[in-house]
Design a protein around this nucleic acid. Structure first.
Lengths: 136, 136
DNA sequence: TATTGTTATACTCTATAACTATA
DNA sequence: TATAGTTATAGAGTATAACAATA
């Protein structure tokens, strides 16, 4: 069978992302959060009191979507929001959120290690800079 | 600001995929098809008469989703389905589908070239094998 | 008994529009 | 006037379950 997709980096990129995000979701299943929320939790965990608007800009998450995402985390008691100046909100992890943060960091570490171990050694150091050049 | 996502290949993979698929969709806008359909059109274009079930297996598309996708292409007059043996269907591009196929090939070629050109030269040859190792 | 195809459905992720309120 | 946040909505992509029919 002819497969014209075989040597297309763009197709490989999509397949790799779908596969790896499914892997990450499986690893996160016990934490109750999804891969789309991981970046937010990690960024807030590392920057307590960061403005929600800054989180959105840093991670390129639309305001409307970030509002819902933060609302879910707050409902679950993982996150607190405080008014900064009547308009902006400072966000931080609650104690429960910090405990979850630890488990997420561990799961992400394992995920990242497993992912990079799938890559043949001679290509490993090239993966991160190559990927970052595609969106940064 | 601390950004713990900065050196995570998994995060970079997701951001790169989202960004590149948006780029591809923009390039495909005039063709009326979406990036998720490109692989199907390319595979069928290269293998006229291929069984639908083989397309699904080759591209890892669920039967239920492939049925709808092929139905859309057929409705638009781009694709024909013929019974192979009372159970399987042979799929092929119609003349209109073949004309679209040409335009898609051109758009994908441009997309792939633009994508690889974003990658610093010293990393380029590593990208495809690295990505393929993540899902193949 | 395994495979193919179909229908219906649900969930995640992302995007857009419209609105309020504050800097 | 630009920014921050909210609500509602829509669409794309993917996944699952149940079913009928055929190999």
């Amino acid at each position: 069978m002819e497969n014209p997709l075989n040597d297309l980096p763009g197709y490989a990129l999509r397949r790799a992302a779908v596969s790896m995000m499914a892997d990450l979701n499986a690893r996160l299943e016990l934490t109750g959060i999804r891969y789309s929320e991981v970046a937010v939790v990690l960024l807030i965990g590392a920057n307590p009191g960061i403005a929600a608007s800054v989180v959105g800009r840093e991670l390129d998450i639309q305001r409307a979507n970030l509002t819902r995402l933060l609302g879910r985390l707050e409902e679950e008691g993982l996150l607190s929001r405080e008014l900064l100046d009547g308009k902006s909100h400072a966000v931080a992890l609650t104690p429960a959120g910090q405990k979850l943060h630890e488990r997420i960091v561990a799961a992400v570490d394992e995920f990242e290690r497993a992912m990079i171990e799938r890559v043949p050694p001679e290509h490993r150091e090239h993966l991160l800079p190559a990927l970052q050049s595609l969106w940064r």
